[in-house]
Amino acid sequence: MKTCCYIERFATHDALTADPKKLVPDPMLRRRMSRVVKMGVLTALECLQGERIDAIVTATGFGCLADSEKFLRNLLERDEELLTPTPFIQSTFNTIGAQVAFLCGCRGSNTTFTHRGRSFESALLEASMLLAEGSARRVLVGAADERTPSQHRVMERMGLWRGREDGEGATFLLLSRVPSSESRACLTAIDFPDEPLDKEQIAVRYVADRVLCDDYALTGCYPTASARTLVHGIEALGGSVRRVAVCNSYLDNRPSIIVVACP
């Protein structure tokens, strides 16, 4: 599906520069944040740089795993008695989106997609539809997933790490309906082809000068790693590279494609 909106800027958890205490000055707010929430919220705020937005769309493959596990373990160990509510509350999939809305006072549309390897692509599609229909002028869209020892172990037993490095991360992008002098890229398509495609087929189909497939050695393997790969794609734009296709096939033989072009 064709889209037309602009990526104004982005932030990734591995390149955070701002002091967490400056981004979230109230220690009473920081104290309940689990690692994935902290990672997501801080990355979102760094991307936002205090700018007003009309909507927030987040993505996560597994949600707040550590808090879910904490509550589940307590429940089983304490035989369903004397359970502390905090990890339950923090385990909801929309925790990051909700915290960001609270911190930046955004009362607009706030949605969370959690569809395995297509979580981020779903969020990006929703964001681009919000912009195209005029429901929003600026949308913050992003993804976060955390690695936990239990999840690593379960997926290891399933044989999913063979030839892959597991990982975690958060990436946020600020999308705008209209371009500005600061626009980094134009988002031109999000697509879900029905059949597996190799790099050459993708380059031809999406008229791309470069095709970036998941590189888990670079990003680590997690359901929303394609958000991080997209940033690599945006950074690759320039010179003779006018259009980049990012291909994500997380635990799936059918790819999802995101296409960005020079603005």
């Binding site: 909801t92 929309n94 949605t111 969370t112 979580s119 539809m129 879900f192």
Partner: peptide
Amino acid sequence: FTTTLSTACSSAANALMTAVRL
């Protein structure tokens, strides 16, 4: 196209909104 939404107790209402957009 297939996707999943999760926004706690308002999830299905939001799913209907995304459906309209599609």
